[in-house]
Amino acid sequence: MIRYLARRLLSLALSLIAASIVIFAVIEIIPGDPAAYMLGLNASPEAVAALRDQLGLNGTAFSRYLDWAGGLLQGDFGQSYTYRVPVAELIGERIQVSLPLAAYALVLTVLIAFPVGLIAAARRGRPADWGIMAATQLGIAIPNFWFAMLLVLLFAVKLHWFSAGGFPGWEGGLAAGLKALTLPAIALALPQASILARVMRSSLIDTLHQDYIRTARAKGLTRRQALLRHALRNGLIPVLTIMGLQFSFLLAGAIIIENVFFLPGLGRLIFQAITQRDLIVVEGVVMLLVFAVIVVNFMVDIAYGAADPRLRRRR
């Protein structure tokens, strides 16, 4: 297991380095002179030079990358050109909305998908399965931000159960904060839960056809016991992979859905930064998002190793 962990850690570090190189190259090398790009066509050469100086954009690409990456390691994402504050500070504020939202949605996804997938697999071919398959087929097809609008229409406009948007901040207490994130989290979670429930169902049905399930039944286990004691753990392995992928969808979805609910998260920050050509902010936020995706997939790999003893030995 330690060997497996060491290997995964090494590949985690390499992935992060590779991703940071790609992001750096797109933002700071492709536009030619980022400072000139940020100021637009009408900027004077003096102003461009001054900005370049201020942002630390002088020097070779290689040395700039090392500076930037070194800064990242210490939590320094550079200076925002429009806000005139450290990018880390901006991110620090906004992440308090986006990350909890994505995590909330992931929890809901799992809480919905696991039981639903399990029921569908246990009742495969029967009406309950049929209903679940039809409902999830629809759930997959619904864009989350549109679903969010419908939720606003129903729960905020018609029923007045929730406010239509905005975020009171965590200072107002955990309950108020969670309440403000509930509709967006539901909107994010239902389509993903539909996918996960279907993956769970088909993976469980696959494992139910394995020889060892027949062995278990020959030992005297009931159908339900065979499903819960043998199929579940084996069937969970592909489900984990999909969960890792889903986190990146949830994170991207969170950024889009913030628009529907006027949430002051990373999405607002980054879309403003794009229109204002604040490349340093874009670079920082993108790096953070990619970092989150890579780390979550690393954790999935570890969970894999825990779930499947065959993986611990080899590779």
Binding site: S11, L14, S15, A18, A19, V22, I23, V26, I27, I30, P31, Y37, L245, S248, F249, L251, A252, I255, I256, I270, A273, I274, R277, L279, V282, V286, L289, V290, V293, I294, N297
Partner: peptide
């Protein structure tokens, strides 16, 4: 395969953000 993993770490929204920013 490692290249694949790397691209997988960039959701299409993030790729679109990068391209649009530039």
């Amino acid at each position: 395969m490692r290249g694949n993993d790397l691209v997988f770490a960039f959701p299409s929204l993030v790729i679109a953000i990068l391209i649009t920013a530039v």
